[in-house]
Write a protein that binds this DNA or RNA. Structure first.
Lengths: 255, 255
DNA sequence: ATAAACTATGACGTTACGTCAAAGTCAATA
DNA sequence: TATTGACTTTGACGTAACGTCATAGTTTAT
């Protein structure tokens, strides 16, 4: 089933000009065109337009939207889950603004004076922008890790049971060493040394662990509860400790 | 207490450029300036800036914001109450978008197909824009009525008790006539004739009842429960009947 | 007295379209 | 079948709300 430009405009509640603009910037190119150059859109195009509208609703620029949607390995379901988080964050801010209206009314009616800062803090976009950046960063990370995953699949395909045993033993030694170092600050040399060993271990046996991947991996250790549970099983708090140490390691090696 | 431009920018979380721009377009002019031309803002300026931010949050253009705030008789408390309604409407739309994310996820997971229209209806701004226009219209109406009120005060200041009795009797006759006509369509000539008499009555004894005021008055009869209760006391449903008839009367006399 | 921080104004650039014009194509109608 | 209305194309100018930059003056801290 295909749709012409006016069909899409009416269905989506946007203007024809908008669709022309999206075509021109490469954000939403119709799947095909007629011999006369008429744009023909498909159901997939409508799905992409819906994603565009979700992301616009979250105040991403059109360039950011395109980058997100064009990321190799873009997963619509995961994206929707993340977008929901952002939308909930936006609603939270809106709730704060509504609450501010009530507080302001109370102030006018002779209630306690409101601090100047409080008059405006609900409008703040910092938290939302932080989530936006985090979302964009997660999207990019998933792509980067997707490449690493493929490298890893290739590498480990030829591993025997003996190979796996050796690798697991090595990994356990590094984990245990790090667990023993938890009384130290994550920035201490011996902790950083062990973290370096962990990174090398991954590179030797799985995939090229760039600093970017390594940093994201650290985040994953505390964000993904399966990782957290697994690592904390060695010693409670180890996942957070490793995450922090990995970030410091990456900061220091970034340049 | 006065604040310089940087103080205000930081307190409100806006840029200095924004404040310059607002000054230039007459939206937020600092209360005073130093001999060197430095802008000095006061607490009142901060209050106006807060109103600006509420209205910006509701997607009014800066010109619309200025018109609203510069309306003679602008009442901050009433404005806040109306803005809260608009904010709640905006949250309602946001809730619909969040719900759409869930529905879209369900669809992807193999649930029932979603109609194309349904994919986009949550993004619709029609209802919000309608509320926006209504809010702007209400603001303008209050001003218009404020002028009429002053004329009315002037006129009725010299009325004696006998005058009031005559006026009341006339009014009751018109109300009763309209009550008797409720079986007719509001557009019927005899209804429209009675409505015209009502308008003339107001102009003769209170204030110049323009079509604009008359139309807004009709709305007031159903929106303000005190009016509704008073008029419906003559016959239930009379307020709504009059409102509709007044609108038709105004439509016909508009040109 | 000097340097850093802050402020002023002017001006160019950006984003995301809206609006308009001119011309071609498609579909409905006489 | 010809004509007309509806729809579509591309190009281009305009708009709103600032961001960013440059230049120069003023205020504040050292």
């Amino acid at each position: 089933m295909t749709y012409k430009v006016k069909d899409v405009a009416e269905t989506a509640g946007v203007s024809v000009r908008t669709l022309h603009h999206y075509d021109q910037i490469g954000l939403l190119k119709p799947t095909s065109t007629t011999d006369s150059g008429y744009r023909l859109y498909t159901d997939q195009d409508l799905e992409r337009l819906q994603q565009i509208m979700f992301l616009k609703e979250l105040d991403f620029s059109l360039q950011e939207v395109r980058e997100i949607l064009d990321t190799p390995g873009f997963d619509r379901m995961q994206a929707l889950a993340s977008q929901k988080k952002l939308l909930l964050e936006k609603r939270k801010r809106l709730d704060a603004i509504i609450d501010l209206v009530d507080k302001t009314l109370y102030t006018i009616e002779g209630g306690d004076l409101m601090a100047k800062k409080e008059m405006f803090e609900a409008f703040d976009m910092t938290e939302i922008e932080r989530h936006q950046q985090q979302y964009a960063e997660e999207t990019r990370q998933k792509y980067v890790r997707s490449s690493a995953y493929q490298e890893s699949q290739k590498k480990t395909a030829g591993y025997s049971q003996d190979d796996w045993a050796v690798i697991q033993t090595k990994a356990n030694k590094i984990y245990q060493n790090l667990a023993d170092l938890m009384d130290y600050e994550p920035s201490e040399p011996q902790v950083q040394e062990a973290i370096g060993q962990w990174r090398q271990h991954i590179t030797d046996h799985f995939y090229t662990c760039t600093l970017e991947i390594f940093r994201g991996l650290g985040d994953l250790y505390v964000q993904d509860e399966r990782f957290t549970a697994n690592i904390d099983g060695i010693k409670p708090g180890l996942a957070a400790f490793m995450c922090e140490a990995m970030h410091i390691y990456c900061d220091r090696n970034a340049e």
